[in-house]
Simulated assay, not measured.
Amino acid sequence: MGNERKNVLEYLPQKIASEIKNKVPDIEQILEIRIRVNKPICVRTIKKEYVIDEIKIENTDMNRIFNIITEFSTYAYENSIKKGFITVKGGHRIGICGEAVYENNEIKYINNVSYLNFRSAKEIIGCANDLYEKLYKNNIFKNTLIISEPGKGKTTLLRDIIRLLSDKGKFNISVIDERSEIAASYKGMTTNDLGIRTDVMTAFEKKDGIVMAIRAMAPDIIAVDEIGNKEDIEGLYFAKQSGVGVIATAHGSNVNEKVTKYKDLFKKYIYIEEIGEYECI
């Protein structure tokens, strides 16, 4: 690890951060901060939601926040912005909504940003201690899919499984970190601990990263977050056909549906019902 983790509140103007600190008893439990022009701030923690109506966000506030998260250089973040999010130091992902600008049938940029969703990254070392050994036997990894609804801790659990498989299982792992949420890489350095045998490919689209990692890094396991489209699945099948194990996450509330859909790809399924509560199938 090469970066000190920044608190998500550090990306907000002082008056807004101070008001949140005054209203939210335990800022370490913050999961999301939703900021909308002309609306109160909504803060969701592990246990409840707080509506902070003492401050109404104005356009000037939004512009200032946007300058902070882009380090006063929107051009440097252009590729991320057009995808609808920015990942900042510490692995926090900030969702962006505004007016789309199209060029050649593709989104070129997002103008007049009026809505932001700060998703606070959480690293919980040891949360997979009683789980990771169930995922391999005789040094053979069982392809694994982690399933839950949004905000239940899929990425947090994935991150610790990667660390343990790398350090204790002694697997070489390539992480394809498309949104920089797993490793929390910032300017080439990772914030999160993914283990001593783990390599990280940041900002690669999953399929491209999987193919390149297999050819260049010879991993035992490929790890990716939030699979869904056809290209993601094609990349994972390429890994399987290449003799490389895969571990991934996916949104969902129906385990049986995922088992039926991916029965040829995954052998183990982990369902997270609530934060910290999971079942291994």
Rank of each mutant, 00 (worst) to 15 (best):
Y50G: 13
T87V: 03
Y115G: 01
R119Y: 11
N79K: 15
E71P: 02
E99R: 15
R93G: 00
E78F: 13
I55F: 07
S80W: 00
G91R: 03
K48E: 11
K89M: 15
R44N: 15
I65E: 11
I69P: 05
K83R: 11
E58D: 04
G84V: 05
I52K: 05
R44W: 15
I65H: 05
Y102E: 06
G91I: 02
K48V: 08
K89F: 06
R36P: 00
I55P: 07
T45C: 12
I41K: 10
R36A: 07
I110Q: 02
E49V: 02
C97H: 08
N63W: 14
I69N: 07
N117L: 02
I55C: 04
E99M: 12
N63L: 09
C97M: 07
P40I: 10
K89N: 13
I110L: 07
G91F: 03
F118S: 01
I110T: 00
K82A: 06
Y102P: 03
N79D: 15
T87W: 01
V51A: 03
R119N: 13
I46Y: 12
G90W: 03
Y102T: 12
I96V: 04
I110H: 05
I41W: 06
I69M: 10
K89D: 12
I41F: 06
E106K: 15
N67I: 03
V113C: 07
T74D: 07
N112M: 13
I55E: 10
T87D: 04
K82N: 09
R34K: 01
D61K: 14
R36I: 06
G90R: 03
G84T: 02
N63D: 15
R36D: 04
N59H: 09
F118W: 05
E78V: 13
C97I: 07
N112E: 04
S73N: 04
V43R: 05
T74N: 06
P40C: 10
I81T: 03
N105H: 11
R64M: 13
F66M: 11
D61F: 14
R64H: 14
Y109F: 13
R119S: 10
N111I: 10
D61W: 08
I96Y: 01
N105I: 08
G91M: 03
R93I: 01
V101D: 13
